[in-house]
């Protein structure tokens, strides 16, 4: 038997999912990603959510703008490399003041094996801030759900764009087999 108190503690990914539910998120755009795999699975399994796989992350910025035109709330899941793909689409978010929350799993910043991930990963936050996206960073599992909830709140209450960066240290560096 495990410790009953410990069994009640959800994994931080499940806690993020609970925060999405709490915020009445109905559309979730995503590009498949190892760090988000569990969250994507939960969203896909929820009948009240429409999980939409994208070919490229910028599609999700436009998808959620369309959803909001009818008052439906969404969230966008991606890896740090995908942030670069979103830059011009974020001009619509800013010009029209569409609410947007991006949950970004980080690569290229902690024990990264692949140097090709480093240029975008090391500039993800700066790139988002250049586009006037409010950026929050999560390094500890116990902060994850609360930070996501706060980012969703300010986005939908203030018609603003927000991003939560889930650090590579939190997620665990990708393991490579030789």
């Amino acid at each position: 038997m495990g410790d009953p108190a410990a069994m009640n503690v959800l994994d931080w990914r499940d806690q993020i999912f609970a925060a999405l539910k709490q915020a009445e998120i109905r559309q979730v755009g995503y590009v498949p990603d190892a760090g988000h795999a569990r969250l994507i699975e939960l969203c896909r399994a929820d009948p009240a959510m429409r999980a939409v796989p994208l070919t490229s992350e910028e599609e999700g910025v436009a998808l959620l703008a369309g959803a909001w035109l009818d008052g439906q709330r969404g969230a966008l899941l991606m890896q740090s490399s995908g942030v670069g793909n979103c830059i011009n689409m974020l001009s619509m978010t800013k010009t029209c003041r569409f609410p947007l929350t991006m949950l970004v799993t980080m690569r290229g910043e902690w024990a990264e094996f692949n140097p090709w991930q480093v240029p975008m990963g090391s500039r993800t936050q700066a790139a988002l801030e250049l586009c006037d996206v409010l950026v929050y960073r999560v390094d500890r599992p116990e902060d994850a759900a609360e930070t996501v909830a706060a980012a969703l709140d300010i986005a939908f209450n203030g018609d603003l764009a927000t991003a939560v960066l889930l650090s590579q240290r939190l997620i665990g560096a990708k393991r490579w087999m030789k």
Binding site: Q27, V52, E58, A62, A65, A67, L69, D70, Q72, M89
Partner: peptide, 22 residues
């Protein structure tokens, strides 16, 4: 009508998000 004056390439996806929501 919702007109895009920018964000080239967005029109079809804005339509998708709206169609799913409504």
């Amino acid at each position: 009508n919702f007109y895009l004056w920018g964000a080239m390439g967005a029109a079809a996806m804005v339509g998708l998000g709206l169609a799913i929501a409504q």
